[in-house]
């Protein structure tokens, strides 16, 4: 766009023409990484709130009695799979393989939806069968707000990826949009790693033998 006649003889200009940015990282990608660094703090705050109250009130709820670790384990598996498919969509986008992008993105969204359904089922199960609501005790407050915020991230990710899926069917989709899909993918993977942490510190540790 701003390439100019002197690209060949001027080393600075040549660099500019090739990379466009000072570091060679695209602006969008860099901004997304900065956002993810910031998001670490969002989830760090939520996770510490949950853990602190869990530690102060170890007996308020017996999570083992209400958690369904098989379901949550399955959800984790689903989310990891969607992450895998997301990586493949990005790869396909870079190759210019638009069919691949559609299939893999569709798969990612499908798995994401399954995860979200699992979470909705879990919440519903907790509320109706155990009477655990936002306002029944501190555990309810911290648990729902933490996992709910993650769920909102997943839902936004699904909307985002879904929009791209639709976009690939329009003639506005161009090769340079591979970058946008990569950026959306970064977000999606981040949602996945947050779940890796939540799965461990919120769910799995409750099952460690000494915790009774």
């Amino acid at each position: 766009m701003s390439a100019h006649s002197h690209a060949a003889d001027d080393p600075h200009a040549a660099l500019e023409a090739l990379k466009e940015t000072s570091t060679g990282i695209e602006n969008k990608k860099l901004a997304m990484w900065a956002f993810l660094a910031s998001d670490c703090m969002f989830f760090g705050t939520l996770i510490s709130t949950h853990l602190i109250y869990r530690k102060i009130y170890p007996d308020i709820v017996d999570p083992k009695a209400i958690f369904d670790i098989e379901l949550t384990g399955f959800s984790s598996f689903i989310l990891l799979m969607s992450s895998f498919l997301m990586a493949l969509s990005v790869s396909a986008a870079h190759k210019g393989n638009i069919k691949g992008v559609r299939w893999f993105l569709g798969g990612t969204i499908f798995f994401g939806l399954i995860f979200l359904c699992g979470q909705v089922y879990e919440f519903h199960h907790f509320v109706t069968d155990f009477g655990l609501t936002l306002s029944s005790n501190v555990f309810g407050s911290t648990f729902y707000v933490l996992t709910g915020t993650h769920g909102v991230h997943v839902a936004l990710g699904i909307i985002w990826l879904g929009s791209w899926l639709v976009y690939t069917f329009t003639d506005r989709y161009k090769a340079e949009h591979a970058l946008d899909i990569e950026v959306a993918g970064l977000y999606w993977h981040f949602v996945d790693i947050v779940w890796i942490v939540i799965f461990t510190v919120v769910y799995l540790v409750e099952y460690v033998p000494f915790l009774t």
């Binding site: 969002f42 760090g44 705050t45 709130t49 936002l134 306002s135 309810g140 707000v145 915020t149």
Partner: peptide, 20 residues
Amino acid sequence: PAITIALIQLMFDRHFGTFF
């Protein structure tokens, strides 16, 4: 992010009866 989350928690306390 820390204050954003704290504000969300406070908002939930005030509007939805949580106990943060």
